[in-house]
Structures are given as C-alpha cells and as structure tokens.
Design a protein around this nucleic acid. Structure first.
Lengths: 181, 181
DNA sequence: TCCTTTCACCACACCTATGTTGCAGTTACC
DNA sequence: GGTAACTGCAACATAGGTGTGGTGAAAGGA
C-alpha cells in the first residue's frame, strides 16, 4: 500500500471511531469529510458501510488485545496486573471510543474475538478473588461490570487525566469505594 | 384526549425508549410497529421524529424528577436518601433506558431541565462529603460519575434483580468498593 | 524522471426514512 | 344510538444515504 493511502486509511478509521461514538448513525460522507478525503475514496476501500464499521471494530480489538498481552494478566501479581491493565486500556478507550457491544451484533467473527478477550479478563478477576484481593461475596459479573464502567468513566469523563493517574483513581475506587473509612 | 389515544401514546413512548436504547437510529416505522399502531398515527401525534424523541426524553425527565423529590435528597439523612434514590432511579433507568446525554444536544429546554436535576444530585453528594459520609480527597465529578455508572450497571446488566436488592449492591459497592478489607 | 497508484470531482441509479393527505372503518363517550 | 374522535390503509412527494462508474490530476516510489 502506498504511504498516502495508508495515512488516509488510518485517519478514516480513527475519525470513524470518534464520530460513530458521538452518533452511531453518522454517514460515511461525514466520516470521509472529517478525515479530509472524498466519500468515494472510502467506498473504494470498504465495499459497504458495514465493512467500514467492521474495520473500526477490528482496529479496537487489535489495540485491546495488545493491552491484555502486555498486562500479563495470568502471571503478574494481581495488583500489578490490575494497574497495568487500567493504564493500558484507558488510552485505547479514548482512541477508539466506539461502543463495541452494539456493533458486534452483526459480526459473529468480531463477537467471538471479543468473547475471548472478555474471558481473559474474567479469568484474571477470578484469580484476584481466589488470591484474596477481591471480595468473594459478590457475583463476578458485577465485579466485571464495575471495573468496565470505572475504566469508561475515567477515560471519557476525564479526558485530560493522564493514563497513569487515571489508573490510580480507577484502581483505588475499585478496591476501596468512595465511602469514608 | 380519548382513553385509547392515551393508551397508544403511552405505548409508543415506552416502546420508543426501549428501541431507541438498543439502536438510536431506529425508524419511526419500527417504533410504531412495536407499539402496534400505524406509522401515520405516530406522525399525527408528533409532527416530526425530533418531536417524538423530545417527548420520550420528557417522559424520562418526569419520572426522574419524581424520584428526586421522593428521595428527599436535601433533608433526609444521607444514608437513607442515597438508598432511596438508588432504589427509585433504577426502575426509571430500566423503563426509560434511552440515553439522555446524546438526545439532549438538540433540545436546549430538556438540557436545562436535566441540568437542574443534575445539580440537585450534586448538591446531595456535596452534603454527603461535608457530613463525612464520603471521601473528600476525590473530585465531586468522579463521585458523581461513579454513582451514575453503578446505577446504570445494576439497572441494565442485572435486569432481574429487584430494585431494593439492586440498590443494596449499588450503595455497598459505592461506599466500600470491591477490594477485600 | 517515469510509471503506477491513488485521489478528487462529477454523474448516476437505488433505496429507505420522513412527512403529508384523503378516505373509510372503528372506537370511545355522552 | 348518535356523534366526534381516532385509527388503519393507500398513495404520494421529498430528502438523504448508499453504492458504482469514469476521467483527469497529483502524489508516491523506482
């Protein structure tokens, strides 16, 4: 692929993620315009609107996969892995703010891939419970939901907070809550 | 208004909230179909699609307002008010799952009303901090964001959990977190 | 420099959603 | 039972998004 084509492709995907997060019905024309290319250029790269959405989703899944690998969820000490995960996933959530769960209804391939990533995270949280770092009196689904929501809040409601500090807040709130001791 | 018309109107609004939550670009035709009425019937009641969305939003704001009143956020003891709020707002969030923040961009009237409700809740949380129930070393915006997210998680990820029990979980997690003491 | 790729611009056809109107049939309410 | 309100159905116009093709210009790479 030629260098300018690669640049345009990347810009289209990132702008697509941003605009689709604000409004999931954003037109291909609007995304193309935001990326500074013509609408037909996007249609040449992606046969259909669906294909574009799939590509955006893939890009997010790629970034997420990398974070999961680097956090070493299965081997590293629980506190270390938790913080590394939070610090890594927050920038991903900011760069690819598009909501995965909605788009994946049509794309069984992406859904399965996301399922795998989800299980890796759940396994980690189960280990955290087993090793005594997390409460065992609440269902794991709740633990998982809370972690996801805290990450999303820190990523989007505090866009200017640097990832390390944002991860501090997420982990602290996750473990200790907001009540006065 | 005739009784059957009122019934249809209510059904359209509730179905609209449900379908629009799953897919914000749901067509008026789909909403009408789900409500068991003809598309033109909806268009007779609401001059435009925008008007329908505004009406759905208003209905949610009405329900929310009632919860805020009944929780007596400004007068009741903090733990009582917090639990009453959570227990009341969870059914509202379930019945009107539509996302407010996105729809309100176009509707300055609804936005201002939501702003007022938001301030009532923020004032309550500030009082909770002042009276020593909440940590004072985190920004109030974070406290607010976490509470909102916990409510949303309990409402939608655990749809079968009864409001009182759901409120228990929300408040417990909000105050104490999920780490092992 | 030369060749290939990629692009912007234009033009077209297609489809879906939106919004309106008229009419006939049905339903609520007095 | 009678009246007014309400609805379903059909038909129509409009607008905007989607997808495709062609052409000349420009930018990248050898």
């Amino acid at each position: 692929m030629r260098a300018d084509a690669a640049r345009n492709l990347s810009t289209v995907l990132r702008m697509g993620a941003r605009l689709l997060a604000e409004d999931p019905s954003t037109s291909v024309a609007a995304i193309a315009n935001a990326a500074g290319v013509d609408r037909t250029t996007v249609h040449r790269r992606f046969a259909s609107r669906e294909a574009l959405l799939t590509a955006v989703l893939q890009a997010k899944l790629d970034s997420t996969e990398q974070v999961l690998d680097e956090a070493r969820l299965a081997e590293a000490p629980v506190p270390v892995a938790l913080h590394r995960y939070a610090e890594g996933i927050i920038p991903v959530s900011r760069e690819w703010p598009v909501d995965t769960s909605r788009l994946m209804q049509q794309d069984p391939d992406a859904r399965q891939r996301r399922q795998g990533q989800s299980e890796r995270l759940n396994d980690f949280l189960q280990r955290a419970v087993d090793e005594g770092f997390l409460r065992s009196d609440v269902p794991l689904e709740w633990v998982r939901a809370v972690l996801d929501q805290l990450v999303a809040s820190a990523a989007h409601q505090f866009p200017d907070l640097a990832p390390p500090q944002a991860a501090d807040v997420v982990v602290d709130t996750f473990l200790s809550g907001l009540g006065r001791a």
